[in-house]
């Protein structure tokens, strides 16, 4: 079986809805053939085996799947773990896009914001002092 290195965090490929559905399926059921995948996600969507085959091929080329020939058909397995893909995507969104500054992200706190420990401690102390001043709980 030919092994591929999962994509680096800075180059998470764009994934369409069908590609994600196929990945979800292969995470739960590794080693499926295009026909198996079609039977589980293609039939209900009314798409052909060829479409499923192209999707699997794209995911393989994006280095997210590995494949092994069994008889006449390839059988596909996810090469990247679900949590790892999510982590890479979050890194991409909260890192690259947020640092770029030209993207519309509404985050509670910017993931790339840094603050020295002493500043954190100073802010904590300030909140405590202001709360005490206003007669609130400690």
């Amino acid at each position: 079986m030919k092994k591929h290195t999962p994509p680096a965090s800075h180059s998470v490929p764009a994934l369409g809805e069908l590609e994600l559905t196929v990945l979800n399926l292969l995470w739960e059921n590794p080693g499926l053939s295009p026909k198996d995948v079609h039977a589980r996600v293609g039939t209900e969507r009314g798409i052909s085996v060829n479409t499923v085959q192209s999707t699997l091929d794209r995911l393989y080329k994006k280095q997210l799947l590995t494949r092994e020939k069994q008889g006449y058909a390839y059988h596909y397995t996810a090469i990247v773990e679900r949590d790892s893909l999510i982590a890479n995507m979050i890194s991409d969104v909260m890192g690259r896009f947020q640092l770029d500054g030209a993207a519309s992200i509404a985050a509670f706190v910017q993931a790339t914001e840094s603050l020295a420990d002493e500043d954190l401690a100073r802010l904590e102390e300030e909140i405590r002092a202001r709360r005490a001043q206003s007669g609130g709980k400690q």
């Binding site: 764009a14 994934l15 809805e17 559905t21 679900r82 893909l85 999510i86 995507m89 991409d92």
Partner: peptide, 8 residues
């Protein structure tokens, strides 16, 4: 990517 994160 955000859409993908929602799906995942």
């Amino acid at each position: 990517r955000l859409q993908a994160l929602i799906t995942l």
